[in-house]
Structures are given as C-alpha cells and as structure tokens.
Nucleic acid binder design. Structure first.
Lengths: 233, 233
DNA sequence: CAGTGGTCTAGACCACGAG
DNA sequence: TCGTGGTCTAGACCACTGC
C-alpha cells in the first residue's frame, strides 16, 4: 500500500508523519510512548526510537526524558544547505567546469575586513581574483583573501590547475566559520566579467573560515544572473 | 582522558574524527570495516555503525555497501540555516515588528507556478500581499498563495493580527518543501513598497511547502536593501 | 522517586552493488 | 557473487528530569 513497509523504521516514520500533518496528534500534544508504539506496530522499541529520533532531528517533534514526546508547536524552519565545491556543482549540471585566475598578489587586508578577519596590521595576505566557468560561460566571480600566517603552503600553490576553494578544502580544514548571502548590483567590472548588463541584480555569498582562532580565508562569490541557491526542507 | 567514554558512540565518533583530521586516514582512503572497528573498540557493531552513520551525515566519510567506508575527498560545506519567523527576527534585532496586509483575494494560480504547485486547474487559491516592517521601516515584501483545498481554515483567518507565515506554521504543519534564494532588481512596485531606488538589487527567498503530496503554500519574500542572511558553519 | 527516552549488546537476516 | 553496510530484535541498564 505505502511505499515503505510499515515495520521498517522509515515506514514507521512516515506513518507518524501522517498522523502529525493529519492532525491526529495536535501540535503540543503528547504522543504515545515508544513502548506503546512499538507494540502497536509490532516491532522492537529500537525501531520506533529510530523513527522518532529522525522526526526529532527535523524538528517535528520534541523529545524529553520523563516528559515524553510532543508534537512541536512551532516546527522550526530549518534548512541544511550544502555549499558544494563549484566544480562539483557545475559538473552535476552536466556542464564542463573551468576556472581562470585573473589576479594574484600580496597586499594588506582591506580595512573593511579588519573586524572579522584578525591578522597583524602590517601583515600581507594573499589576494586571489578568479572566474569560474560552466561550458565557457561565466558562472561565478570570486575574490578571496588567504591568511598566509595560518596557511603558509598557499604561497607555493599555483591555484591554476586546482581552484583555491578546492585546495583549501583539502589542505586547510577549518573548524568553524560564518556564511552570509545577499544581493548586489553589477558594477562595471562585474558586468564585464559575468557578461551581465550593468546594474543587474546578482546573488552573492560571503564566507569566512577559521581554524581555531586563526582566520584562514575570506571569500566572496558572486554568481552570474539567474543563479538560484536551492535546498529541500 | 577524553570527554566521552571510548565505548559510547559519541566517544567512538570523536576517536574516528581524530584519525580523520589527524590524517591517520588519508582523504579517499578506505577505513576498516565496522566489524574490525567494533573489535578494536570492544563494542557491538551497532555502536560503531551509529558513530559512522553520524560522520556520514556530516559528510566526513562516504559509505557504500560492499565498497566500505572512505574518508570524503571533499568534505562538503554544510550549513544549517534557520529561517525565522520575520516577527522573531525583527524583535531579536531590538526593533518593533509590524505588518500590513496590502491585498487579499481569491484568484487562479499564476501559470508560472503550475509546475511546482499542483492544484486543480479551475480552483482558486488565496492570494496575499503584505509588507513587514521593523520600526516602521519596510523590512520585507511578501507575496503568497495558499491552497485552500489543503488549508480550508485559511479562508476564515484575517491575517491582520497574525501574519500568514505564523498562522500557517501553527495551523498547517508541512512535511517537506523547497527553498530557494536569489537576487532580483526592484521594479517600480517593489521600489515604492520597500523605499528603494528602482533597480536596486534585492535579496529574495522563495518557499513551497507540502503536506504529503498536497501543496500548502507558495511564498516569496523580498527583503529591503542591505539584508544579509547569515549563518554559522 | 519513578517514568521516559538514550544507549548498548549479541546476534541475525537482508539489500545493494563492486568486482 | 558475496562482502559490506543497513536494519531489526529482545532485552538490559542508564541518565535525566518532571512529578
């Protein structure tokens, strides 16, 4: 009848989900214990536990010891989005990836970044400017600063065969970072690089990553017109 | 010695993580089978499985039947972003939230949405157009379609005291949906509503939610200039 | 204190897919 | 084809926390 067998954990999850979205169990209401559900479905408690744990991870139910499991009052709108390496994203579209390094030099960190990206005031950082292509059409424009104090190996890397993003992912694992999305208008330079009319609205992503307290890199990616970042929730 | 006991699944996960970031197991390299690891840690295979499953979910290892478990070559950059109810987001900024319903009527679904939002061709949907304010300054513009077949109660709701978003979150739980972010230019209407110069680049978010197979709502939020959606990774 | 979810075990069978 | 991860079981003990 249904897609999944009813005594597989996914099947049980689907049945529980049906009861939640179908209002059999009202928001805020406590649902039966694992043991009762296990008996109802004729399976081990472990299996019910697996299903409920999955629902709890997606935020649909709230579980507390001793207090039982309740249907969430405000199912939080959470989305996990995976920011792929551009090469993989492009290739997943069935297109050919290529990138080209436009500029590369050592320079002081621009003042705008001094707050978020703490390097010694007189230290130079590695600046990279590059363009990513899909089937020879511009896909994204990238500007990046790399902290050589944290990633000295970057100075020797050419970033021509392999993009800075991929190099860093493989050579400088980060512990945490910040990510931001926003919109900006194409200035003359962007307009030329991305083959877009001046003033076109472009989707942009900014990322800073750290290894412990040490900043690794600051990257700004600006995508060609029409780009949409999608995810399932 | 370590935070977690070594034969708890979290403890095992930490140990495996150490070996991965410490390059004991190189990227792309196959790691021992569950059975071997279980023997090494002196625990049941289920426990090792739990730890490995967790690492696989965060993308650090790739698991395939028969092929075994390998350290991921390009650990994907995953970010979980929480899409807050606008009222909460504004109030968290210490500003006063207000919203105003600009339009409300029944109309056929625009053809553009026919693909993603399957309603009977002759059925009307509830259309809402509203504006969200922070301290009396425009914060976001919203256009929304609600499928009355799935959420009949919406027809009776006024959406003046409580926003459609909040009403739906509490009255029509969804099972899944799609989310997209992109940039667009302010047309004359948007420009007037959001107090932005025509052509300004604006950050936009589109969301469709479903209860099972039934579409619930399609919403497009367009934020005032300068908006950044942030998250930690 | 006691009920509920969290976890672990030892064993078993199954499904997938690389070789 | 057959090794590997995926899942299920029945039972047990533990940890947390509301009553």
């Amino acid at each position: 009848m249904t897609v999944a067998d009813t005594n597989s954990w996914t099947g049980i999850r689907e049945e529980l989900l049906r009861r939640i979205v179908g209002r059999v169990w009202q928001p805020g209401e406590q649902i039966p214990h694992e043991a009762d559900l296990a008996e109802e479905f004729g399976c081990a408690r472990t299996t019910v536990n697996r299903a409920l744990r999955d629902l709890a991870e997606s935020g649909l139910v709230v579980r507390k010891r001793r207090a039982g499991t309740r249907v969430a009052l405000n199912p939080p709108q959470k989305a996990t989005l995976t920011i792929p390496v551009l090469r993989e994203e492009v290739e997943a579209l069935g297109r050919t990836y290529r990138h080209s390094l436009l500029e590369r030099d050592l320079r002081p960190l621009p003042p705008m970044l001094h707050g978020a990206f703490q390097v010694p005031p007189d230290a130079d950082v590695l600046y990279l400017k590059s363009l990513h292509f899909a089937d020879d059409r511009p896909y994204a424009f990238e500007e990046r600063y790399i902290n050589l104090a944290t990633v000295p190996g970057a100075q020797a890397a050419s970033f021509e065969a392999i993009s800075a993003n991929e190099w860093l992912v493989q050579n400088a694992p980060y512990s945490h970072g910040d990510l931001a999305f926003f919109a900006l208008s194409a200035d003359d330079d962007l307009s030329a690089q991305l083959d877009a009319a001046p003033g076109t609205a472009l989707f942009a992503m900014e990322r800073i990553t750290f290894a412990g307290e040490e900043p690794i890199t600051h990257a700004r990616l600006i995508f060609a017109p029409g780009y949409r970042m999608r995810t399932a929730i």
